[in-house]
Design a protein around this nucleic acid. Structure first.
Lengths: 157, 157
DNA sequence: AACTATTGCGCAATGC
DNA sequence: TGCATTGCGCAATAGT
């Protein structure tokens, strides 16, 4: 009792309808030369096969045929398949775009940081110049007589 | 309302062995009551092999049955399903992470730009101070003799 | 050689 | 009513 040998559903027996791929999915597949259409579709019943319709699921499929055999069903499926494909393609594209955006932003970030570094350095230089100048002033300030320590403390920073 | 009350496949209890819920996938997804697993037909074998056993008919495919009824087959499928799920989950997670990264980077970019703006302003101020000072010097410079234009031109930048 | 990871695909439910 | 999204399982294939 480990595995019921009965097929699960398999009602998907398909028919011999010739609805095969009507759509021209000219999508540029990556590498799928051999169209292994593994769809639940009867590509072609066994040669010499009989047309017996009974499938593994011997249920009642008289009226049921209007379910999957229906031209409309097939048509809807096909449309949906197309939509799905499109949607997924878009999704993938979006993901790639996002990834690219990340790279772009990273680059820009680096640029900005470099700029900041440069500006900081420039500022530093200027400030040093200021300090130096201040010192010079302090040195040149005329001492009030016997008071060489008249420097008002530059108060750096 | 487009879905008629009649079920299609899976009608049978279809042994809920494990195909569906194998792991804790308490995802917040919509309730997926019936495991509507479709059952595609064995893919058409690649060129070369002529499988004459592929038939939907409820025959006595002994060897063939060992294909899908096999315990091992089922097990492998299950494992793969798990792997697929995992892989997709990861993929999705990654996408989200990437998107978040974009936001993060954008924020950082703004911060950096603000900083640049600030530094630029500071620099500008300092430079102006320098210029002003230079002018003062020029004004105060004691003209060596009718030569008030002794300022060596600050030559900014 | 056996297994997992990825990927394309179709189906069906569900979201607009 | 119809396309768009999304979860899911299958099978082929790549990667270990």
């Amino acid at each position: 009792m480990s595995r019921p040998p009965q097929l699960k559903v398999t009602s998907s027996d398909h028919n011999g309808v010739s609805v095969i791929q009507s759509q021209s999915h000219a999508s540029a597949g990556p590498a799928l030369p051999p169209p292994p259409q593994q769809v639940p579709q009867p590509s072609s019943p066994p040669p010499g096969g009989k047309s017996a319709s009974s499938s593994a699921a011997p249920g009642k499929m008289k009226k049921a045929s209007a379910d999957k055999d229906s031209d409309e069903y097939r048509q809807r499926r096909e449309r949906n398949n197309l939509a799905v494909k499109k949607s997924r393609q878009r999704s993938k594209q979006k993901a790639m775009d996002t990834q690219q955006r990340v790279n772009q932003l990273k680059e820009e970030n680096e640029r900005l940081e470099a700029k900041i570094k440069l500006l900081s350095k420039e500022l530093s230089v200027l400030k040093d110049l200021f300090l130096e100048h201040a010192h010079n002033l302090a040195d040149n300030v005329q001492p009030p007589a016997g008071n060489p320590d008249a420097s008002p403390a530059p108060n750096n920073q």
